[in-house]
């Protein structure tokens, strides 16, 4: 017997609604609880009828503001360093065919499989020796190591999407190689690179292990939350911390929508 098509459609929409709820409900609940007055939260009311920013303010007093700024600083520095170092490599991988190209590419992919935990112990000792422990620059250097393979591979694929002869046209009509890169390649790659940059920022923003072991007084936001904010017995303050962490991620989602599927499938590889 054939199932009528409207029943199939209904089942599909029901299933998708469940999936969407599964993702959105916890997100919404944590966000709402971050703004729920204490007396309401500790009552039996499931949802509050009024909201308050007092938990966010408390968090600020505890030092979340500085931690937020530090995280932004480390993230921006990581994006800057990893693009400065990785962009030329990505360009080379996309543009030149040379012996050893696949080997180098595989080598870069191979470094991606080692989590930051693996390098953190050694880096921590080295940074102690160099006086880079508890510094944001040290953390950005570590995050750059984590982000660099991604940046090389993703920029490689972005440049690979730009036709070679569009660049050659630039050469023929009077630009130098550097001129072509700056005035033809870069403008064409810009939207993709911007999305890749945002994603790199998020990699750093979300990283907690290295941040927690490397910094002590200069904690970034995730480290601050893991060590300090989580020690507070007042639960909604923890949710306010979660909200602070989530915010840039959601903004990123909004800006990078167009590149979402391709980029993340790439990022995962």
């Amino acid at each position: 017997m054939r199932v009528p098509s409207w029943a199939g459609e209904l089942a599909r929409y029901a299933f998708l609604s469940l999936l969407v709820a599964w993702v959105l409900v916890p997100l919404a609940i944590a966000t709402i609880y971050a703004f729920t007055p204490l007396e309401v939260y500790y009552s039996d009311a499931i949802l509050p009828n009024s909201l308050t920013a007092e938990h966010l303010r408390t968090l600020w007093v505890l030092g979340a503001g500085e931690a937020f700024v530090r995280s932004v600083f480390v993230g921006v520095l990581t994006v800057f360093l990893s693009f400065l170092i990785g962009l030329p490599g990505g360009y080379a991988l996309s543009r030149y065919v040379f012996p050893g190209r696949d080997a180098i590419k595989l080598g870069i992919i191979a470094t991606r499989m080692f989590p930051i935990i693996v390098i953190s112990v050694s880096l921590l000792k080295t940074f102690f020796a160099l006086g880079l422990n508890d510094t944001l620059i040290g953390l950005a250097l570590a995050h750059t190591a984590m982000a660099l393979p991604f940046v090389v591979l993703i920029t490689g694929s972005i440049f690979g999407g730009i036709p070679r002869d569009v660049e050659e046209a630039g050469l023929v009509f009077g630009l130098s190689s550097i001129g072509v890169f700056l005035r033809v390649t870069l403008p064409l790659a810009a939207p993709g690179l911007a999305a890749a940059g945002l994603f790199t920022f998020l990699l750093s923003w979300n990283e907690v292990f290295m941040a927690s072991v490397l910094t002590l007084t200069n904690r970034t936001l995730p480290a601050f939350i893991l060590v300090s904010a989580f020690a507070t017995p007042t639960e909604p303050i923890r949710f306010a911390a979660a909200f602070l962490m989530i915010l840039p991620a959601l903004l990123f989602m909004l800006f990078a929508r167009r590149y979402l599927v391709t980029m993340w499938a790439m990022a995962a590889r």
Binding site: D165, E168, A169, V172, G174, S177, L188
Partner: peptide, 30 residues
Amino acid sequence: LPPKDRNVAMVFQSYALWPHMRVFDNIAFP
């Protein structure tokens, strides 16, 4: 000499117009 110092111009098989420029700017760019 690199292409830029040769005073040549070329029509490519794929045309290779610069996608981020309007027609006017494509022609004006050289």
